[in-house]
């Protein structure tokens, strides 16, 4: 996983709340067995609409998505994070993220930056007034800067540390392999197995 320190890219105002993972990538794209190439499924239903924000030239190569509250609700599909990353999105900014989506983001190296809804509105206005404006997200400082606007964002310290270091989850856990083995010895005898 690549480490994340700062990122600068075009901001995309996605004026929708409750963007569920079926909207981020419909189930039909989940049939693939590879780990890349999901960009064509990103917001698939909306991209047939010419007025959709990603169909506008100023935003189509954007990498910082600014969305309404409750982003990533619904299905646990990690493909939602992959589709965003494959498209080139490195940061999603929202006032509220669904838990599973937030967890999936940190594992994939996508930064889910939580700000207040007032700050989302400020960013939306700025990006709509100046289409193509770039946004700089600094994970060390936990700031988002666009033009003269500078706001802070929330992220839990552990996720922040992992993103900064680019740590892979399994390697982190396998440092505790002995403790896992010890725990297994103490499991109750009535616990079922699938055999």
């Amino acid at each position: 996983m690549d480490a994340f320190h700062t990122h600068t890219g075009v901001g995309i105002p996605l004026r929708r709340s409750n963007v569920d993972t079926d909207q981020i990538i419909p189930a039909v794209y989940l049939k693939r067995i590879t780990r890349t190439g999901f960009e064509d499924g990103l917001f698939a239903a909306w991209r047939s609409d010419p007025t959709f924000v990603l169909n506008q030239p100023a935003f189509s190569s954007g990498s910082v998505l600014v969305a309404g509250p409750d982003f990533g609700t619904g299905s646990s599909r990690e493909h939602a994070v992959w589709a965003l990353l494959d498209y080139g999105i490195r940061v999603v900014i929202s006032s509220r993220f669904a838990d599973i989506f937030r967890g999936n983001s940190s594992k994939g190296g996508l930064l889910a930056a939580e700000v207040t809804q007032d700050d989302v509105e400020l960013l939306w206005k700025l990006l709509e007034n100046e289409p193509g404006a770039s946004v700089t997200v600094d994970l060390e400082q936990q700031t988002i800067a666009a033009r003269s606007l500078v706001i802070g964002f929330k992220i839990d310290p552990y996720t922040r540390w992992r993103l900064l270091e680019g740590w892979d989850d399994i390697s982190l856990t396998l440092r505790h392999a002995d403790e896992i083995s010890e725990f297994e010895i103490g499991r109750p005898a009535f616990a079922p197995t699938t055999r």
């Binding site: 646990s76 599909r77 990690e78 493909h79 994070v81 599973i100 967890g103 999936n104 594992k107 994939g108 989850d169 399994i170 856990t173 396998l174 392999a177 896992i180």
Partner: peptide, 11 residues
Amino acid sequence: GTSEVEHVLAT
């Protein structure tokens, strides 16, 4: 998610 599936399979 799928990364967690891999994590549980491995650990």
